[in-house]
């Protein structure tokens, strides 16, 4: 399939978005968003990890390979890591990975990282809304994706 053909967006297409969320902050923020009945699109699937530093960049590659259209890694704000320093390593790893993916032709909007605390339910919802909006605009990801 040429890139031109790939540009075609199937009818009723909905993006699949994967969010790796730190158990201590963003996952709790998502719970709080639920508790407050905040609405956001159904496209997001959350995977719980103990810390954003548990997220191996290879998981991101795998997600794109298997057909995810956008990936978010979310952890505690710098200085607030439940495990003291995990998010500082996350920051280094993904600053590099994001640029590397971009260099390989993956739009940086498809792979983002955010700091969202357990109290920031609103920020969690807004991030989901923004992410879905951006990914919808970009259309389905076919780069790195396994042909089915």
């Amino acid at each position: 399939m040429s890139l031109e053909e790939q540009k075609q967006v199937p009818e009723n297409w909905e993006p699949t978005i994967l969010a790796f969320c730190c158990n201590w902050c963003t996952y709790a923020g998502a719970d709080l968003a639920g508790l407050n009945r905040m609405k956001y699109p159904e496209n997001v699937r959350i995977l719980r990890v103990p810390c954003s530093s548990r997220v191996n960049p290879q998981f991101i590659l795998r997600a794109f390979q298997k057909g995810v259209d956008g990936v978010l890694v979310a952890g505690c704000h710098p200085g607030d890591c439940h495990y003291v320093s995990g998010n500082y390593f996350t920051r280094r790893r993904f600053l590099l990975m994001q640029r590397f993916l971009e260099y390989n032709g993956i739009d940086p909007r498809r792979f983002q990282a955010r700091w969202i605390s357990g109290a920031e339910a609103g920020k969690f919802r807004d991030t989901m809304l923004q992410l879905c909006e951006e990914i919808k605009e970009l259309g389905p990801n076919r780069k790195l994706r396994e042909v089915k």
């Binding site: 710098p78 200085g79 320093s85 920051r91 590099l96 955010r114 700091w115």
Partner: peptide, 15 residues
């Protein structure tokens, strides 16, 4: 190697 350490003042793009 820089991926085995960090600095508090590393670039911040993820706010």
């Amino acid at each position: 190697p820089p991926l085995g350490e960090y600095r508090l003042e590393d670039p911040e793009e993820y706010m």
